Simulated assay, not measured.
Amino acid sequence: MDNAAVLALFDRDMREGARPDGPGARVERVGAVVRRTAPGHGWNGILWSALTAADADAVIAEQIAYFTELGRKFEWKLYGHDLPADLGQRLVAAGFTPEPEETLMAGESAALTLGAGPPEGVRLVPVTDRAGVDLVAGVHERAFGADASWLRGQLLDQLADFPGTVVAVLALAGDEPVSAARLEMAPGARFAGLWGGGTVPGRRGRGIYRALVAHRARVAADRGYRYLQVDASDRSRPILERLGFTPLTTTTPYLYAPVR
């Protein structure tokens, strides 16, 4: 895989050329940025930018003013190759809080190693209704130690209004939910995204996450997506590399909460 070419394609498809992919979502290019706004539980933030040292601070201030007027928290999703090189420092100076850095990884669906099934005693089941969504949210809270009310609302909205854009799956050990993950598929894009793969403490290191990756990869390939992409933590990166994913760059969420 030509990593530089795939990264450039990712920038064009999923960032600069992003499409609305959820209930009420709007994607618009405003000057040197592409931003997404969405009501309710939807994600709000900056997907792409083409800034210089001369205009970066002014553009950052414009976006803060825009989202503050809407009364919404938002994220500036910064990638390692974005310019200017000190954009992260500028965001912090403007009041953003950085989250942990992750690695943007990608792989060609046809070239990935997808033979992994779940370990003995674990089965994968699709999520199609509110009861399943509640189980996914519960796994997320146990796996990541964070509130998942936003995920519950987002998944319910997607399954109701945009069912073709998301596949959610649970891993059950007996009747106990032990892991969960999502596959998001933007219409017309060449990349499908792997999100939320989390396994509860006490069940990690047994191949459940790997099986969820392989399952979603097969679904994406069957639906014609050439590439898979994932923002990988340090814990998941080695597993993804063994499956055939390649690191492309880093990505860091910078979060801004308007002062009320």
Rank of each mutant, 00 (worst) to 15 (best):
A186Q: 13
R218K: 13
V166Y: 02
R15D: 09
L112Q: 02
Y66N: 00
D147Y: 06
T128G: 02
A186R: 12
T165Q: 12
A25E: 14
V30D: 15
A137I: 08
R29G: 03
G80R: 04
A106H: 01
V92L: 05
R216V: 00
E99P: 00
N44K: 12
G42R: 09
A116G: 06
P20E: 07
R242D: 08
R130F: 05
T246V: 15
V200C: 12
V33M: 09
R218L: 01
L114N: 04
R260N: 08
D161P: 00
Q89D: 14
L240P: 00
L70F: 04
T52M: 05
G164H: 04
G40R: 14
W195T: 13
G31T: 11
R26I: 05
L183Y: 05
T113E: 04
E141W: 07
A148H: 02
P84Y: 05
V213M: 05
R123K: 14
I46W: 02
Q89A: 15
A257H: 10
P258F: 04
R29C: 03
L135P: 01
A173N: 15
G31R: 11
G80C: 01
V30F: 01
P20K: 03
L255P: 02
A220H: 04
L243A: 03
V125G: 09
A61I: 12
Y66L: 13
R223F: 11
R19W: 05
D11T: 15
D234R: 15
E99F: 00
E62Q: 13
A168S: 15
G45A: 09
G45Q: 01
V125A: 14
A18W: 05
A180N: 06
G132L: 05
W48H: 15
K77T: 04
D234E: 15
H140C: 13
G71V: 12
G45M: 03
T199L: 09
L155W: 11
P39Q: 06
A106I: 08
D129E: 14
L51H: 06
T246H: 06
T97D: 14
A160I: 06
A93R: 13
L151G: 03
L91D: 01
V219G: 03
V166C: 09
E108C: 08
A131D: 14
T246F: 03
D157A: 15
D55K: 07
D21P: 02
R226I: 04
T252A: 07
G207P: 09
V92M: 13
E101V: 06
A8C: 06
T251G: 08
G95I: 11
L228V: 07
K73E: 14
A106Y: 01
G132I: 02
T251K: 11
E69P: 03
A65W: 13
T128C: 07
G174N: 13
G117V: 09
E241C: 08
E184G: 00
T246N: 04
R36A: 06
F10H: 15
E241Y: 08
L183G: 07
L87T: 11
A180G: 15
D175M: 08
D134P: 02
D175E: 15
D21R: 11
A85F: 04
A4L: 14
G153W: 04
G88A: 08
G45T: 05
V6E: 02
L248G: 05
R142P: 01
Q63K: 07
L170S: 08
F245I: 05
R242N: 10
A257G: 06
R12L: 10
H41I: 01
